Every structure is written in structure tokens, then in C-alpha cells.
Simulated assay, not measured.
Amino acid sequence: MKLSAAIGIWLAATLAGTSVPSTALAQGAQRLAFFTSSETPTAIRQRDALLEGLRGQGIVPGKDLRLIEVIADHDFRRLPELATKLMEQNPDVIVTAYAGATLAAMHVAGDTPVVFAAVSGPVGNGMVKSLAHPGGSATGVATNYAGLGGKRLELLKDAFPSVSRVALLYQEKYASACELEISEVVAAAGQLGLEIKHFSVVGGGALGDAFKRMKAQGANALYVPTSPISAYMPTIVLLARKHGLPAIYDNQRYVEEGALMSFGADEAESFRRAARYVARILRGAKPGAMPVEVLERVRLIINLKEVRARNIELPPSIMTRADAFVE
């Protein structure tokens, strides 16, 4: 498909049970859908980074594109429903954030191109056949967590030297998606003198019981591998705090939601780069022939508000290594 030069309107619609009438759409301009499971403040930052990237590609939202926003606001159970409503708007391209929204969109998108961002393990999650040759109708920007499992565990140990037994929490269905990271964590644990206890859950409803078992088995810290279990991360963050388990996560958005620390990819950059895929697809490229880009840059983020609220004294070595702080 060719990028339309026709004047359009910028349509921003959060589909929380309502749909946007097609009569509100100017003729000619193409529809770009943005679908995220995030809460609204994070979704706005993701969208703004995407729009910044589009402008860098010479595409003007509101002129060349009409934007349809679908923000799940952490209502993960509604992702399939919202994805279906999104498709009623007949988007030309869908940009998704995180695994949950991506998988929900792909389930109903058919041949509509899906460009994902801030996704890890797209091959293991079944989104693409391979990074070099995605096939199908999806491609995008993945985060590279190879080798980060051990580094993240080391940071957790450095921040909390008394930690001795770490609960490793993942979703049973997607264990293969984080298999490499789990092996890295287990190997690093041996070098750090830590014991790893595995806890797999079927879904969000089993998390409460899993945390009770963690405490019963003497776990005094938590590690959550990067995987679709992130759909339940708000609950995980709350349960970790409730049970007094220090944890380090893979994404800054969890720190913004109350988690103590994160060590992972620069999410905004992921969306800026996703814009390149959108531009190429709108100009005729096929997503299945576009290799997945792997983002390498990582950052350590610390939640100072949480540090103060819980009277935590982090070692100076951790504080000086931080790339940014959340107040």
C-alpha cells in the first residue's frame, strides 16, 4: 500500500466500550492503530515516542495518518474484546505494545500488518518464525535480554546482600519463551551463592497461592523473567510488596507503578524505531520480509519514592549505577 498524501484528521479514540463511527474519518488518509495494555500515562509516553518516530520518517499524524488508540489500562481480560473492536475500525497497520496486546491483535488481525514494540522473545511467543525471516504479517522491535538474566540477578544481590533464596516466577504456558533467561539466572545463582526456587503458575488467579508458597519455602527475594506473565505485573508488584520480597524487573513501567527497581530496555526508543517499520509498510513493504530489530540499550531505574516509603537503604554502588530515578 502507498502512503496517502491526502489530508486526513488525527483520530484518537480510546475504545473502552465505545467505537468511533466511520463517518468521523476523512477519506483518503490511512488508519494507524495503536494498541497497548498499559495504563494511560505509560500509553501516552509510548504513543508520543511512536509519533516522534513517524515525524522523523516524514509522516505527519493528522495529515498522512489517522490514529486510532486502544488503551486497555491494565484490564488484561479485555484484550481480546478490545482487539476485535479495534479491527472494526479497519486499520491499515497496527502498532502494539507488549506481548499481551500483540498476541491479542495477531489473533484477529488476519492479513493486517502488526508492528510490535517492547516485546521480548517474539519467536518463543509464536509471533514470528525467526528474527531474520518473520514470515506472516507481524514484525517489529524486540528487546534483547540475552545475558541480562545474570546481570539482573547480580544487581538484586548487590542491592540486598542478605538475599539467599530467590523465587523464580513464570507462567507455565510460556516457559519456553523465557527458557534462556531462566538458565542464565540459574547459572548466575550458583556463582552468587543463591538458591533458586521455581514457581510456575497457570494464570493470574494462581498468583496469590504462589506467593504464599514462596514465603512458606523461605524465599526472601523475587525474580520474574521477561515473558507474557507481564500481563499480571501490577498484581505481582503488589504481592511482592505485601510479602516483603525485594525484586528487580525488566521494564521501567513497573517502577512507575510502584516497583522498586528495573533493569531493561529503553522502551521509548523501541517505539521510535517501530515507526520505521510503519513507514516502510505504508510504502509497500511486506512485514514478513522485514527482519525483527533487536534493541540492545538497557537502563537501571530506581524508585526513590518506594525506597523512602519502605525505609530501604540501598548501597551507594547501586545508587551510582542508576541511569534514572522515579520520584
Rank of each mutant, 00 (worst) to 15 (best):
A5K: 12
A6W: 02
I7R: 07
L11H: 07
A24M: 09
G28Y: 04
R31Q: 09
T36K: 08
S37Q: 11
E39G: 14
L54V: 01
L54A: 00
L67E: 12
I68A: 00
D73I: 13
F76W: 13
F76M: 12
R77Y: 07
P80L: 00
A83F: 00
K85E: 15
Q89A: 15
Q89Y: 10
I94A: 05
T96M: 07
A97W: 03
Y98Q: 15
A101R: 02
P113L: 03
V114Y: 00
F116S: 03
A118V: 09
G121V: 08
H133G: 00
T143N: 14
Y145G: 08
G150E: 01
L156T: 06
V163C: 08
V186M: 10
G190A: 02
L192H: 04
L192K: 04
G193R: 12
E195F: 14
I196P: 06
G204E: 03
G205P: 00
G208K: 04
D209E: 13
V224L: 03
I229C: 03
Y232I: 14
M233H: 09
K242S: 07
H243S: 06
N251W: 14
A259W: 08
A265C: 12
D266T: 10
D266V: 01
E269Q: 12
A274Q: 07
R280N: 05
I281G: 01
E293G: 05
I302A: 00
R310W: 09
E327S: 08
